[in-house]
Amino acid sequence: MTQYLIRRVFQLIPTFIGATLLAFIIIQLTPGDFTDRFALDPNADAEQLRRLRENFGLDDPILVQYFKWMWGIITAGYLGESFTYRAPVTEIIVPLIINSFTLVLISLVLTYLLAIPIGIYQAVNQYKLGDQVWSFFAVVGLAIPNFFFILLLIVGVLFLQGPLREVAQGNAWYKPILDFLSYDLRNGLLFPVGGMRTTEIYDSLSWWQQVGDRLWHLVLPTLVITTAGLSSLVRVVRGQVLDFLQSDFVRTARAKGLSERVVIYKHVLRNAISPVISGIGTVLPELVTGAGLVEFVYRWPGITPGFVIAIQQKDLYVVMGLLVLSAILLMIGNLISDVLLALVDPRIRYS
């Protein structure tokens, strides 16, 4: 195993260089660059634009720009400077990563904690009422697109605001629900996503109020992401457990007098869990790439909105910084999944 890990680590180096070089070239091949929007301004100073391009090295060949950027990563861990914000890329992307990491991590933990026991329950109770009910919800979850489910939740929130306010009539017991239902879907979350007012309000809160505010506004986006992953993962776990329930070693374990709980969780689940563990390779990049459409609709200040804005503004090094983190986490995730598979499944050995 040690030799295998060392060999895999060395294999990650050319993979990382190839992935980042390809991404860098593709981004550079798009028409125009960051200074083009200033060049279109009739009042722009041509000399100032020339100095700007010289400072950022935009006139250098693509490979020269790439190797300068890569040398900064190797020597100092420096991802470059943002063209738009005139600040190190790390300062720009770290807050976005933290927001996306929080959202996706909570959703993934809930998905795995719910999918495994539900899938086992369905397999053990195949074709019974409980299995049919969960199968129905799983099919509905797979059939409904995320963007439509998001809209349904928004409509539900807006619809419930009026009736609940009439029922509450100032009763303090309903206040948390009303606060949640009245969160502004147009202007986004209370913590800063742009605008002086929201920033001032958020900064005036104590640290535990800030944490509570973030968690409170995580409810709807977390619900969307969790249900989307739960529907498919439950089907995988159910199918795997059903396959191994018919195996010879399960019949042998039962013939030895082992309890059904030991048979399921010690023998069946250990073999059936392999596809779930192999999927861990994609989990780490998801923690950085964010939740896509969900972040846009719910105004969550995460990676996806920041990535799109950086592309629109042709902010090269911000885009590359996000791609670098995604590539690294994807490679690390695949390595972790391979190691976990070897630990869980005794049939897998790396020599």
Score class of each variant (00 low, 15 high):
108 L>C: 05
35 T>V: 13
112 Y>H: 12
330 L>N: 05
85 Y>Q: 14
173 W>K: 07
305 P>S: 00
5 L>T: 09
348 I>G: 07
268 V>H: 03
116 I>L: 02
178 L>A: 04
127 Y>D: 13
74 I>Q: 01
258 L>F: 10
133 V>E: 08
56 F>P: 00
104 V>Y: 05
276 V>M: 01
285 P>I: 07
73 I>K: 09
303 I>R: 08
13 I>Y: 07
46 A>W: 00
315 D>W: 01
308 V>P: 10
131 D>P: 14
297 V>R: 14
112 Y>I: 08
270 R>Q: 11
334 N>P: 00
202 Y>H: 07
232 S>I: 06
314 K>W: 02
82 S>H: 10
78 Y>P: 12
56 F>Y: 15
297 V>P: 08
253 A>Q: 04
332 I>A: 06
163 P>L: 03
25 I>Y: 13
104 V>S: 06
44 A>F: 06
91 E>G: 05
5 L>Q: 04
264 I>Y: 04
17 I>T: 05
188 G>P: 01
132 Q>G: 00
184 D>M: 14
130 G>P: 12
284 L>V: 00
159 F>Q: 14
24 F>M: 11
208 W>C: 06
91 E>T: 12
339 V>D: 01
98 I>V: 15
40 L>H: 01
71 W>N: 15
141 G>Q: 02
28 Q>V: 10
114 L>E: 11
213 D>T: 15
67 F>K: 07
308 V>Q: 11
195 G>D: 03
55 N>R: 15
95 P>M: 03
100 S>I: 09
166 E>R: 15
286 E>R: 14
115 A>E: 01
332 I>P: 10
201 I>A: 13
38 F>N: 09
120 I>E: 11
110 L>S: 00
242 L>N: 13
124 V>G: 03
323 L>H: 11
283 V>L: 13
160 L>E: 13
147 F>G: 00
74 I>P: 09
247 S>N: 14
313 Q>W: 01
324 V>N: 01
72 G>H: 02
84 T>Q: 15
338 D>I: 09
82 S>L: 08
207 W>D: 04
318 V>K: 11
197 R>F: 14
254 R>A: 08
134 W>R: 00
195 G>K: 00
180 F>S: 06
269 L>F: 05
178 L>S: 00
195 G>S: 06
27 I>W: 03
244 F>D: 13
249 F>C: 06
11 Q>A: 11
18 G>I: 00
22 L>C: 08
250 V>W: 04
323 L>I: 15
141 G>S: 05
193 V>Q: 12
317 Y>S: 09
129 L>M: 15
293 L>E: 02
258 L>S: 00
